[in-house]
Structure formats: C-alpha cells, structure tokens
Design a protein around this nucleic acid. Structure first.
Ligand SMILES: [Zn+2]
Ligand SMILES: [Zn+2]
Ligand SMILES: [Zn+2]
Ligand SMILES: [Zn+2]
Lengths: 164, 164
DNA sequence: GCGGGGACTGTTATATTATACCACCGCGCG
DNA sequence: CGCGCGGTGGTATAATATAACAGTCCCCGC
C-alpha cells in the first residue's frame, strides 16, 4: 500500500507549463506507439488543448478551439477523440463537471481521486492506494464487485484557501 | 470511526418494497417538520416516484410520470423539487448517471459512497467513515479543504454477479 | 380587512451536453 | 482489383439542465 505520490499536488502558479504540455504529448505518443494505437492529428490536437492548463475543459469548449484552428469540427469529432483518449487512459472525464482533464499518470492503469478547486477550477489527481483499497474492500464485503470508480472531491486548493 | 452499517446492502428481491416507500416518506415528513421545511405535494410526489424502486431515476423520467398524474409538469418543476430534496438530504444525485436516488439515511448529514450495479441498475449507499476520513485526510495533506464528495463505484451487485 | 413580502408553482424559451446515423476516404490485404 | 475496417465529415436529434418572468397563495403586521 503506497502513499500518495509527491507529484500529486497543485502546480505552482509560476511553473513552466509548456513543460507539462510537452511531456504529456510525448508520453501519449509513446503510450500509443507501444500499444499500437493511432495517435492521429485530431487526437493529438485535442489532447494538446486539454493540457492548455490544469483546469477541466468541456467538450464544446474544445470544439470552439478546434474550429478556430480552421477545421470545421462537429460534436462527434471531438467526442470521438475524447472517447479514444479516455479509453487510452490519457484523459479522465470528471462526472461532476461533465468535463475532461489530462491524466497525470498515463503510464500505468489506475483510477485516481480528483481534487477540484471550486474557485480557480484547477484539478489534481491523487492516487492513494489506501483509499482505493479500502473502498474496494468495503464494497466487496457487501458482495459488490467493483469495475469502475469515480471519486471527485470539490473544495478549495491551498492557494485559494489561503486567499479566503 | 464506525463501520459500515448493516442496513447498507442490496435489498432482497422479494422484500416488501412498499415498506421502503412508506418509511422514506414518513422520514421525509418528519425531517421537514423538524427543520421547518415545506414538504409540498409536488415534492412529496417526486420523492415517492424516486422511491418506486432502488434504481436511480432521471429527471425527465420523473417528468413523464408527473405528467401522467394529470398535472402538466415542465422541466423546472421537477428540477426545483429535486433541488429541494437534494438540499434537504432526502435524495442524492449520482453524477455518473445524471440521475437521482432516494437517500437511505436522511436522518443525519452525511456524504455516502454509492455502489451502482451496471446490470440491474440498483444502487446502494454505503456510509463508511473509514473511507470518508482517509480521503479527507489525504486531501488535506495536500492542503486541499474538502467541501463535497462524490464517490460512485460501478460494478456488479451480489445477485447479478452470481448470475454471471 | 388590507397590503407587502416571500416561498412556491406555471410557463416559455433556451442553454448545455451527448449520441445516432449515414457517407466518404484511405489503406492493408487477399 | 474488391473488400473490410478504422478514422473522419456532416446532419440531425436526443437528453439533461437552467434563465427569466408571471401568477398564486399564505402569513403577518398594521
Ligand atoms: Zn502545468
Ligand atoms: Zn484554487
Ligand atoms: Zn425497497
Ligand atoms: Zn445487479
């Protein structure tokens, strides 16, 4: 039972975010290559747009931005790309927001716990094995076999919490 | 830190469900009376419809049933009733399904964990203090102050699990 | 009684999120 | 070549949710 990883915390406001984008795209490229998945231009572009910052993005917001690229995108286009990215574990869907956020640990299968700041809207993905296991254990004590988890906590991030 | 309550488990298929409805309505009546909330006919009727079984219900399904009552209900009518019931803790909204389910423990404030069977669609509300606390603790270790939790597990209930 | 205010409901319109469905294209493969 | 399949383009529509404003009812203070 490992502890929450140190990488799981709210990014400093002044961090080099282009770094985040670069490494997310590189990791995606690598993941798809290894698994024989096709990382097409649309999929790549959608992932890049999702990573523009650490806030979740709605499908129709992505659609707007794709249109601004010059390609006349329609809803199915972006939903298909999102479906692929979620399926591939490169993106998570936040059920409480109907929005999508880049996955912080695309290298391995997992189901994280999301901390969503209601003020600045930034999201962090925790990956606490303790929580995952105890949830699964209690569910199975009731005879329930878990297939998917959706765990989303809304509140205030450290920065917004300090700023009252 | 109490354990999961024994009441939190999937109801036997042959249980007397009219009992469930009765007691949910009685508890709602009592809760509203104590807190000075108005348990109006629409709100009562929506709660009754939600409790028709142990599956989550969509707002527009409730709308259909209200219309069948004779009252020409419009979306805001049912959404207002739902907002009231959720606010009062008599109903929970399941974000992963965009649907609503009766609360099993309306007598006290809480944030449960939901087990959702993807086959029979029944839902059970666990209330594991252990999970709640460890989630909160880990989130606060990252400086995050939790205000709301949404925890929903999808899988197979004991009955559906046995039936393959 | 009467008037004001607040909570509730009725009604219209619209916003937001998501999917069904069909046509086309490009490419690998027999 | 002819076929199948994954990806994309495009239209239409489904499903979920809210904005905004008008009417109604009831309590309460005067
Ligand atoms: Zn960043
Ligand atoms: Zn914040
Ligand atoms: Zn029952
Ligand atoms: Zn089941």
């Amino acid at each position: 039972m490992t502890e929450t990883r140190p990488a799981d915390s709210f990014p400093a406001p002044e961090h080099d975010h282009s770094e985040c984008i670069e490494s997310a795209l590189a990791a995606a490229e690598e993941t798809c290559r290894r698994r024989g998945l096709r990382f097409t231009p649309i999929r790549r572009r959608v992932l890049e747009l999702i990573w523009q910052n650490h806030e979740p993005v709605g499908a129709y917001h992505l659609l707007d931005q794709l249109s601004r690229d010059g390609r006349r995108a329609m809803p199915p286009t972006v939903y298909r790309a999102l479906e692929f990215l979620v399926e591939a574990g490169l993106v998570h869907r936040l059920a409480t927001l109907n929005a999508f956020v880049g996955c912080a640990h695309p290298d391995h299968a997992h189901q994280g716990q999301f901390l969503i700041c209601r003020d600045c809207r930034r999201v962090v993905e925790m990956e606490s094995a303790r929580v995952g296991h105890s949830l699964r254990r209690e569910a199975e004590a009731l005879g329930f076999s878990v297939e998917e988890q959706s765990i989303e906590l809304t509140g205030l991030c450290p920065d917004c919490s300090q700023a009252h």
